[in-house]
Design a protein around this nucleic acid. Structure first.
Lengths: 342, 342
DNA sequence: TTGTCTCTTGAACACGTGTTCACGGATCAG
DNA sequence: CTGATCCGTGAACACGTGTTCAAGAGACAA
């Protein structure tokens, strides 16, 4: 460490007034120098920027937000952070928001009540928008956002919402494709692991799978579990074994769930996958490519979801009266070792 | 959906002035009604609260922040979100911050340059504090924070920093305890997987392990890898096998790394653990308790880290001149199936 | 030279809040 | 009844910025 301890001089941060004085112009000119497309002469701008850099001036975002009635803060309400997929999604969203000049304010919640409360709090901050990836908020909150002109984007929900845009991956399509893959492989039994917990995206996947199976007159078995977690996947495995099916294709609507199923089948029940049975998941979390798992799954396009979210946010901000939109992004199946090569 | 579409009336949010008029008092009284410990008569307060709830009044946090020269925003700078331990830490920190009345502003970064840039941006928001869990920032940034009276808490770094408090788990202690466990078990060879990438917390664990081994004159082997990731763990396994050691105890400074090692040893090299060798990790991420892994590891006290972080933040806010503090929290070994029961 | 037009400038206001300070009413002791 | 003390109140200011608007400077054509 340097021997000369820098004294912690608590000097007040430079304001636009200080910069104006130093540059020999009025404060308004300083403001204009930092506002793109504003009417200012090149020499004035240069003088201001020079003075600003000398004083290490930075515009006070609180004052700016108060004046413009809009901060560049964006609420980010998420639940279930323990799911690696969610962490990846947050990472992508946060980076994208920052890259576009916004600042994400993070709320980690459990349950709908907390979601509503968080959004309500967010409204006090003149946020530029709110992104929700947790349990869907009550409609009342949508109206509240609309009243205050706050764009609302909901990720991974399918229900129609007033004044809110949505973006989701092609959940039903993934389910269908999983069923098709099993049928191509020649699996006799199609098995769907279906959580009781109602989460739109997850339900849509199972629904797509079931419909495809039924419309092709396949034998379909449903194993009900409480939620789409690793532990539920383990329980599903016990349930599966007790039915002693042969040549089955099992679709788990979540990688976590699939990994629980897979792990229990191999480690506990000694199953040989994919010889005895095939398994497909959904999300493509990093753990799915680990050696023990080597899980065939659907890759969610986290980057595209983030990019689309920002487009929706900004376009609705430009035109609040715009019709609600729902964007569905395609998913791609990543074939690994829990299905047969073809 | 309700048939009566609520019209999106863009009425401006109620201000304290509106509330004052409705309650028949002055605006100052409204402010006092919402400021605890302020001098106001009970009947005035009641009138104000009544009017406020009727108008759905909420104080404008931007104006409040501008006036108080301090928002309740707290910067949260993190890297390596792909590590489930990091996600858990963020979850705990975010929840704790919100519970204490703060709002976390999330910056997901890669590398030190981005960290510095993020903190620099944060300074424009009159933040109440900054929490850094990513690569350690340059000292200059510490002085900048101190100048602006912004408390800075650094998580999981050991280096001394000016004007910044630190909180970390007992990394060296964990390493020592891992070595002790192996010795109690009667392992002949002690093996440390050591990443080249310098991350303080990780290095401290390995250092603690190596010292304990040396001071007990154990045979110590170091396997060098690039970083503490799952992939590096796999590579370490290849390297380990090529040395054909028997009765070894392997310490991986990260669960991700340990799981990579474990997975490769079992799945690829057919090792029988813990009969052939023992493995201990660090972090206790959820995946470590999965059946395939069943990894013995050290549980990081994410909740306590979060609580301590807030204490440090708030106390330094109260007294900025306070001496820098470094809090070390104990870790607990969770014994599972990759070590011998005793 | 004069009139018009374009471009830049600075004074003033608005944004919504917390806080200071002087004032007035009420309570209480003498 | 009088003077002192205490407490609640409201007017005014400060926080730092973006923007409006009238005015001024300069360029150019007639």
């Amino acid at each position: 460490m340097s021997p000369r301890e820098q004294p912690p001089q608590r000097k007040h941060a430079a304001t636009s007034f200080d910069v104006a004085r130093r540059a020999g112009v009025s404060r308004a000119v300083v403001s204009r120098a930092f506002t793109p497309g504003s009417s200012i002469s090149p020499e004035s701008r240069k003088k201001v920027l020079q003075a600003a850099s000398e004083l290490d001036y930075r515009v006070n975002q609180m004052a700016r937000a108060l004046n413009r009635k809009r901060s560049d803060l964006v609420g980010l309400v998420v639940s279930d952070m323990a799911n690696p997929y969610r962490a990846a999604q947050i990472d992508a969203l946060a980076k994208r928001l920052v890259a576009d000049g916004y600042r994400p304010v993070l709320f980690c919640v459990d349950g709908i009540a907390e979601t509503e409360q968080s959004i309500s709090l967010l409204l006090n901050y003149s946020v530029s928008g709110v992104v929700v990836t947790s349990g869907l908020p009550p409609e009342a909150i949508c109206y509240k956002c609309a009243e205050r002109n706050v764009p609302l984007v909901i990720i991974d929900r399918g229900h129609h919402y007033p004044h809110a845009d949505q973006v989701t991956s092609d959940n039903a399509g993934g389910g269908r494709e999983a069923a098709a893959k099993f049928m191509r492989q020649g699996n006799r039994h199609l098995v769907a692991v279906e959580p009781d917990l109602v989460v739109f995206s997850v339900s849509a996947r199972v629904e797509g799978f079931k419909r495809a199976a039924k419309s092709n007159r396949c034998e379909l078995t449903v194993i009900r579990v409480s939620d789409p977690s690793y532990a539920s996947g383990q329980k599903a495995a016990d349930s599966f074994v007790s039915r002693s099916m042969r040549n089955a294709g099992v679709f788990c609507p979540t990688d976590l769930c699939a990994l629980g199923f897979l792990d229990a089948m191999r480690t506990k029940h000694g199953a040989d996958i994919p010889q005895d049975l095939s398994v497909i998941g959904y999300d493509d979390i990093p753990q799915s490519s680990w050696e023990f798992a080597n899980l065939t799954t659907f890759r969610q396009p986290v980057g595209e979801v983030a990019a689309t979210t920002l487009e929706l946010l900004e376009s609705r901000f430009a035109d609040p009266e715009m019709e609600e939109r729902q964007v569905v992004l395609p998913v791609r199946m990543i074939e690994r070792g829990t299905t047969l090569q073809q």
